[in-house]
Design a protein around this nucleic acid. Structure first.
Lengths: 344, 344
DNA sequence: ATGAAAGCGCTAACAC
DNA sequence: GTGTTAGCGCTTTCAT
């Protein structure tokens, strides 16, 4: 039917031009060994035949892939989507390919992806751990293999690795201080496990702010859990069951805040009139778009950029490896809140 | 300092066990040639030493990568993020790796990424074109190389390729019909170029609905453009300059709607009181969360899933290749709108 | 049941 | 300036 289309390789070009593979290979890379005329002839032919080099072969030979591996818990999530986009852009600018994998908040899947990326011989690994991740042996193994490793935003309990995070404790602290100044007294915190840095740190900031104001800590109002919508929903229901509602909730992530909103909505509790919510994350787009929550804004783009720069630094300079911690500031964003009209 | 850590390969295992590489290779793949005892011994050692196969070598040898390449215009964008997540999940379930690239709405970058993916020898390619893409030669080249190709959501003008899209025309039509029934008469459409299917089709549906109701078409109110926030902003400003405002705007995407919102906000025009906006896309999370816009909801997860299934089908069955077009229905979602309180 | 040899497509080292 | 040789790590015949 249609003419048999083989994929062109170096050898094909070599035969047509009656030179050796090596000449072709060098010519395509503008190697100074080769005369400009030959280079031009080779490139023209390559173009004409639609030659595309085989990365598998190239990388196998080079024993390096020029590639950064990424393991992220979620994509459909504005914060992570922005981090990822920024990593892609920064990597692209530096001529690195990015291999993204998505763990869907599952430790098992995270492990699998890391092994995959290792077997693809990525030059470095950027990871944001799942909400479940407790076991760090897989990361130790990465380090043992001398693959540079940088954690972004979510970091496990592990010595000797680099990380780029935000000032979670400070962010929580400022948000709660602001709320207290506004007159709130009955403060709650929902979401986060102690084995993931952001859960621990955000709760710490929350508690510190209460302490600094001599406010009592109501254990019923400090609810741990995951980082997803369902965790916010369940967390709020748990508080609701105690028949004693707070006036203010600090949610550990945006999805958690949404879950809280949904639960409140079902119960006929108005947000923000009855309970004000602040969460970590990114407002959908800008502060003029009405949002029900205030935000501890995380500089997602900057996180991605710094993480990428750091990993590239480590890749280029494996001898001088020295774990580095970069901590970025957050910013409290007071939203232009809509009046809520609960759906009934 | 720390002990020199070489990456373990087949040969290392072979030496330790005093068998050949081949035995190891087969054992790791549970090849029936190998005795259960040997298999167990090999696997135990591999585990102990942390052996990770080299995909480069494996794939080079297999002349296939078990990988699906993805070229998407944007990530930090709920619709695309959802499509991507769904593609990842579906591919994962089918034991395919996904290689994501992001064109950032730039035709040049799209071309580069496609070449990259070709050189990585992906088994198939899923593409959603940029707003700029006019030249289709690169796609023809992909087809010539017999690499299965499926477009998702955004499709170029090109014969003989598979696609998974939504019923854009119908979606526009229903949205506008609904608005007309509600009493709106002065209708505008912002965004979209005619060379990308979704721009063309959405505008067509808009125009058809006006025609069906014998409403005049005001050329000033049909503004073309890209799919980004800036395009919505500029589009609205263009309309504003004519000193004749519509009552209703159909925005070609969610970012365009946001741009319109921002422009209106700057001008002191209230959304949705003065102008109602409907856009294509995904509401941030669910219909109970207040949103300023109504949505022609695109089934992002389903799009991703179908596209992935289709490409896998094509990969498994290259002989029987026959372009296939899948069109999914949209759904008009009326949001629980907040009262606007322009910031100013 | 196990292994030796050849080859996947490319590049680096070293001739000529 | 160009070519020869060897090898990257794995898999696939084909012997044994």
């Amino acid at each position: 039917m249609n003419k048999k289309v083989r994929i062109i390789k170096l050898e094909d070009l070599a035969k047509k031009l009656k030179v050796s593979k090596v000449t072709i290979s060098k010519a395509l890379r503008n190697h100074p060994d080769i005369s400009p005329l030959t280079i031009k002839r080779v490139k023209d032919l390559a173009d004409k035949l639609g030659y595309v080099p085989n990365y598998m072969a190239k990388n196998l030979s080079a024993r390096k892939s020029n590639t950064i591996g990424l393991v992220i818990p979620k994509i459909a999530h504005l914060f992570f989507a922005s981090v990822i986009e920024s990593i892609y852009d920064t990597a692209f600018e530096n001529n690195y390919e990015t291999l993204l994998t998505v763990s869907q908040e599952q430790e098992e899947r995270e492990k699998k992806h890391i092994l995959s990326l290792l077997s693809m011989r990525v030059d470095g690994l950027i990871v944001s751990i799942t909400q479940e991740t407790k076991d760090t042996t897989i990361f130790k193994r990465v380090l043992q293999q001398n693959i540079p490793l940088v954690f972004v935003d979510r970091v496990p309990d592990l010595e000797g690795v680099s990380s780029v995070t935000v000032d979670d404790t400070g962010g929580s602290y400022s948000a709660v201080m602001y709320a207290i100044k506004k007159g709130y007294r009955k403060m709650a915190h929902i979401g986060g496990y102690p084995h993931v840095n952001i859960g621990r740190a955000r709760r710490d900031g929350f508690l510190q702010a209460l302490n600094a104001n001599d406010l009592p800590i109501n254990e019923d109002w400090v609810v741990g859990g995951g980082f997803g919508e369902v965790d916010g929903y369940n967390g709020f229901m748990k508080i609701y069951d105690k028949k004693n509602l707070p006036e203010y909730i600090l949610a550990v992530t945006y999805p958690v805040a949404l879950g809280i909103y949904n639960a409140a909505n079902e119960l006929g509790i108005r947000i923000p009139e009855d309970i004000e919510i602040t969460c970590f994350g990114k407002n959908s787009f800008n502060e003029f778009v009405p949002s029900m929550f205030n935000f501890v804004d995380q500089p997602a783009k900057e996180l991605g950029k710094q993480a990428t720069n750091l990993i590239i630094q480590h890749i280029n300079d494996p001898k001088a490896f020295e774990p580095k911690h970069i901590e970025l500031k957050t910013q409290l964003i007071i939203s232009n809140k809509p009046k809520s009209e609960p759906v009934g």
